[in-house]
C-alpha cells in the first residue's frame, strides 16, 4: 500500500516538475524610461533576471542597472557576448552598465555560466 502511494507521489512530482520548468510561463518585459535624452532600466538579479526582457530605444544612450540580490556565485557575472561585456555584480549593490544602442537588434545576456538568460531588444 505504502509502495503504491510512493509510486503515485513520484509520478505526481515528476508531472509537477515537467509542468513547472518546461511549461509555458509568461516572462516580464520592461521598456526603458527615456529621460533627458538618456534611458535607464533596472534589472533585479534573483534566481534569474526580472525583467527578463528589456526594450531600449535605438540611438538614445542607455544605462542598465543590475541589482544582484541572489547570493549564488552562478549569477555573480553578467555577460553580453555581442558587446564584450563581462561584469562582476556585487551582491546587494547596484551595478550600472552603459549600453551602446547604435545598432538595433536582439542581444542576449546571460550569467557567467550561460544558464540564466535575458534579452535586450534595441529598436
Amino acid at each position: 500500500m505504502t509502495q503504491i502511494m510512493v509510486l503515485i507521489g513520484a509520478v505526481g512530482l515528476i508531472g509537477f516538475i515537467v509542468w513547472w520548468f518546461f511549461g509555458k510561463h509568461t516572462t516580464a518585459t520592461t521598456t526603458a524610461k527615456v529621460q533627458n535624452a538618456t534611458q535607464a532600466a533596472e534589472v533585479v538579479v534573483s534566481g534569474g533576471y526580472s525583467p527578463e526582457t528589456v526594450v531600449l530605444k535605438q540611438g538614445v544612450p542607455a544605462e542598465l542597472t543590475f541589482l544582484r540580490k541572489d547570493p549564488s556565485t552562478c549569477l555573480d557575472h553578467v555577460v553580453f557576448p555581442d558587446m564584450g561585456i563581462n561584469d562582476f555584480l556585487p551582491q546587494d549593490q547596484a551595478h550600472t552598465i552603459a549600453i551602446d544602442t547604435t545598432k538595433p537588434g536582439n542581444y542576449e545576456f546571460a550569467c557567467g555560466m550561460n544558464m540564466f538568460h535575458g534579452q535586450l531588444i534595441i529598436k
Binding site: 513547472w20 520548468f21 511549461g23 510561463h25 534573483s46 534566481g47 534569474g48 526580472s50 540580490k69 541572489d70 547570493p71 549564488s72 552562478c74 549569477l75 544558464m115 540564466f116
Partner: peptide, 17 residues
C-alpha cells in the same frame, strides 16, 4: 545562500546547480 538562490530560481521557473 544555496537554499535562498534555489528558491529564487524556482519561483522564476528556473533551476540551477
Amino acid at each position: 545562500p544555496f537554499l535562498q538562490s534555489a528558491w529564487a530560481s524556482f519561483r522564476h521557473h528556473h533551476a540551477n546547480m
